[in-house]
Design a protein around this nucleic acid. Sequence first.
DNA 1: CGGTACGTTGAGTCATATCAACCATAGTGG
DNA 2: CCACTATGGTTGATATGACTCAACGTACCG
Lengths: 236, 236
Amino acid sequence: MKPSEIHIPFCDKCAVESNSLFRHLTKDEVDKINYEKDFRHYRRGDVLYQEGNRINGFYCINGGVIKVFKTGLDGKEQIIRFAKKGDIIAYRSVISNEPACTTAEVIEDAHVCFIPAEVLFLFVKTNPAFSFELMKLTCHELEEANSYITDIAQKSVRERLAEVLLHLVEEFGLDENNYLKISLTREELSNIVGTATESVIRLLSEFKGDKLIELHGRKIKVLNAKGLEKISNVFN
Amino acid sequence: MKPSEIHIPFCDKCAVESNSLFRHLTKDEVDKINYEKDFRHYRRGDVLYQEGNRINGFYCINGGVIKVFKTGLDGKEQIIRFAKKGDIIAYRSVISNEPACTTAEVIEDAHVCFIPAEVLFLFVKTNPAFSFELMKLTCHELEEANSYITDIAQKSVRERLAEVLLHLVEEFGLDENNYLKISLTREELSNIVGTATESVIRLLSEFKGDKLIELHGRKIKVLNAKGLEKISNVFN
DNA sequence: CGGTACGTTGAGTCATATCAACCATAGTGG
DNA sequence: CCACTATGGTTGATATGACTCAACGTACCG
């Protein structure tokens, strides 16, 4: 689909389709976002915002995939999360009124709505249900972050890679042939797992040798999810 | 101070003293907490709540120190945070209405107020300013968690230990003789850093050899904070 | 066709985990 | 009061997972 064929999405429709936070808004509130928002297109590699930037609004993803990462030692990225249709990013910086502490970069060409900070403040202040849902969302992310800290501190790279693959299956799904719907570079994978690129490569081909996955370039076919689960030690 | 000498604290006073979240409440609201709360004492080793527990309220720390941790592989703890005077814990589970995903255990004898969930819900729904502050708090914790993920994924144990020591200095302070005001077992230290107890012991005595710290049992005297900063690689 | 980014493999090294033994301390119960 | 036990701390020896460095292969792109 070329950009010219993409129409500015209606928030109410998008919110329902994507099960986003905005389904907790009233008709008038959704109209307000529709009116205030700025619809933008980005291509793979484009950066929405960078660590240290002051951002005067947040982004709601209508389509495509964004990676959100922090830059650590020697510029190595640590991917914190992905954002896809219905997800919002940068809201943390808006709420805290602090410069962004992450960078957001497009992985799959994306359509994104930029919504001014004031709109968020207004809703938070006047719509307790929305406010509560946003808080739930934040709490959920916090819980995930804490779990990941425990994982990364205690599990081996092998376990973590298996776990990451399963997370990707859960978040992005498999196509009819069991191929993971998202494709990442080996480096990106290593930046989620928190390891060296070479380690990811070696472990992936181990998994392949054990008939857990097949590799076709960046496309990963999942043959044995149960096996990956076993390796990942998800339970315990 | 013996338990019998400790009086039930007034939330308004406590809130101001400790700069807690509750300073954003109205007089009536503070009165409501004062009326609804349950004041409790705990000794070192006591557990306030455990992973998997359903909790119908949250805790506000009036004194003492609590460690909040997740249990990972082989029962190894990963300490997520500490809570001291003015901090609240377990609010995440209350907001999400999910079982606790952490355990809270007393490190230094503590006085704690237990506040029923409904009170929190009420305030969140009726006091946007409070709600906003709570959201800020959550966002702040989220940001810290994300930073720690990056650290733990990219830094060496040595760097992380130095960093943890500095964090402890920041959070708990030093006494007049530069002793860290909180004392932890080597195992607890290792459960923050995310490493083996033996590694902590070896690195601590390295730091001691480099005249960065002195060790007297569990008491740690900080001799050269700048040196620790250098090791920890905080800036980059 | 050369350039650039990504992927792969091998070899060597090192930090850290693991295992085991031992010491110090304090609390317990006979 | 003393052996007994538990808990925490320390040290040494050994094993190994994972990183680093380097070389080379591959594919796409202008």
